[in-house]
């Protein structure tokens, strides 16, 4: 229980830091703190594989990506007054009510099984045990998630070479459009016109 309380306090502190820091970098770093505490909590919940994935993928890869983007956009000051100043107190009050209601519901939870026997069935949540579930009962989600990764990769690539609307060069050259649909007409064709 002592471990849980310490971790819970750290997680909540990190979460509050995430939403209250003005600077994007501090926000992201607070979230990293919360994610790491959650990873430790996963260990106490007998989910060893998830704990390591949480550290490597979430706190590692995803948050580094966030920090990279924050640096790239040079997000030093989050300027600008809130256009709807009344939202903040209302949202905070609503959030407290929501948290209280949800926590109250949480304590209505009646454990379906004896906790000791249920925990034993998890086999510690080791990669072997998780892998067995993933490749038997959970095969369809495991395969389907590959589509998700594919669309994420293609989507992210296509977002960076979007075309500006109403490009004169494009309109004049679209008659003899190249036979390669991926060729970047917006950048290559004006050069052709000049030549």
């Amino acid at each position: 229980m002592v471990v849980f309380v310490i971790l819970a306090v750290l997680a909540i502190a990190g979460a509050i830091g995430t939403i209250s820091f003005k600077s994007g970098i501090y926000s992201a770093l607070s979230l990293v703190g919360t994610l790491l505490t959650l990873a430790m909590m996963y260990v106490t919940l007998h989910a060893q594989f998830l704990a390591s994935v949480q550290v490597m993928v979430y706190a590692g890869a995803i948050m580094v990506l966030f920090l990279f983007v924050i640096m790239l956009l040079n997000e030093s000051q989050m300027s600008g007054a809130d256009p709807l100043p009344w939202v903040q107190p209302v949202a905070i009050a609503g959030g407290i009510v929501l948290a209280a209601a949800l926590a109250f519901t949480a304590f209505q939870f009646k454990a379906p099984k004896n906790l000791e026997t249920a925990t034993a069935a998890l086999q510690g949540g080791t990669p072997g045990a998780i892998g067995e579930t993933l490749f038997t009962k959970f095969l369809l989600p495991f395969e389907a998630v590959s589509i998700l990764l594919l669309i994420a990769a293609i989507g992210a690539v296509s977002l960076v070479h979007r075309q500006p609307a109403h490009n004169e060069a494009l309109e004049t050259t679209s008659e003899h459009a190249t036979d390669n649909a991926y060729s970047d007409e917006t950048s290559s064709n004006p050069a052709k016109v000049v030549a």
Partner: peptide, 20 residues
């Protein structure tokens, strides 16, 4: 852990991928 079912842990793995 409450249900003693690894399905939910696998689901968390999927949701991690989804978040990425």
């Amino acid at each position: 852990r409450a249900w003693g079912d690894l399905l939910a842990q696998s689901a968390v793995f999927i949701i991690l991928t989804l978040a990425a």
